[in-house]
């Protein structure tokens, strides 16, 4: 049994209750489309998915669309404009189940690097006509704006997790991916610990698994694209980084990539004790 089971009762779509194909929509906000492409990368399983759902809106795969309501909405990207804010509210309204996919949607993405900086200065440097730009000061996750039924982490998401979650949803089961560390997968797959064996800074111990320890499997440190695990002890890892010669600035940069705000917030909150 997974954490978070004890939430408001799930409003299961009638189609799923009756074993009929539910409608599926895929939505895009500020993002690189990589997570949508991951869906197309599911190759072997893509046809099986297409067999079990009615794809109602999927800009990467088809130009056709139908009006809502939708049984399942997959949402990629972060909220960065006032228009986004209105559109996500409409999508939530039209969707029975809403699943966010990828670090942009779950944590604001790399574009959240601008949060806390001077957005007007940025636009005046980048754009010839900054007045055309109507943008929010912060890039924020979908869950800051609407209720999210399930989050799939990662930059990009893991295709196996996506297929597993969809298969479970069709079986009337909202399965929440494990919240344990990347280390758990590192040890299970037999990858060497780069932090212990070569003093390579690695965010694995404070990062949620789900990628199958992809980077450590190639002797690279984890850069935290799945975001913080439950109870991440960011300060504890920072101390160890200092001990192997990684200073606080370098650690801050390491923590400030695809889940910029999430690690900082976790460290602020104090990770190890709830």
């Amino acid at each position: 049994m997974r954490i978070g089971d004890r939430r408001p009762a799930i409003d299961w779509p009638t189609a799923i209750e009756q074993g009929a194909p539910p409608t599926l929509a895929v939505w895009k906000f500020a993002s690189c489309d990589g997570c949508q492409l991951t869906i197309l990368d599911c190759e072997d399983q893509l046809l099986a998915i297409a067999d079990r759902v009615r794809i109602a809106y999927f800009p990467e795969a088809t130009s056709g669309s139908v009006d809502g309501p939708y049984d399942i909405s997959l949402v990629e990207g972060s909220i960065t404009t006032p228009g986004d804010r209105e559109r996500i509210a409409e999508i939530r309204q039209a969707s029975r189940l809403l699943v966010t996919i990828g670090a942009c949607a779950t944590a604001g993405g790399i574009q959240a690097l601008r949060n806390g900086a001077d957005i007007e200065e940025f636009t005046s440097i980048v754009y010839a006509q900054p007045s055309y730009i109507d943008v929010l000061a912060d890039s924020t996750p979908i869950s800051d704006h609407v209720t999210v039924d399930l989050e799939l982490r990662g930059c990009p998401i893991d295709p196996g997790q996506l297929v597993g979650v969809l298969a479970a949803l069709l079986n009337r089961h909202l399965v929440r991916p494990p919240t344990t560390s990347v280390c758990v997968e590192c040890k299970a797959t037999g990858a060497a610990c780069v932090l212990v064996a070569s003093a390579t800074p690695c965010l694995g111990p404070i990062t949620q698994g789900g990628c199958g320890a992809l980077c450590p499997g190639f002797d690279r440190g984890c850069y935290g694209c799945f975001g913080p695990k439950e109870h991440p002890n960011v300060t504890g890892l920072r101390r160890q980084f200092a001990a192997i010669g990684v200073d606080d600035d370098a650690t801050d940069r390491l923590l400030s990539t695809f889940n910029v705000a999430a690690f900082a917030d976790a460290e602020q909150a104090g990770g190890s004790e709830p």
């Binding site: 049994m1 997974r2 089971d5 004890r6 799930i10 009337r172 089961h173």
Partner: peptide, 12 residues
Amino acid sequence: RHAGAITSALTH
């Protein structure tokens, strides 16, 4: 009692 995912399925 409907508490988690499994008991939700069983009570269904």
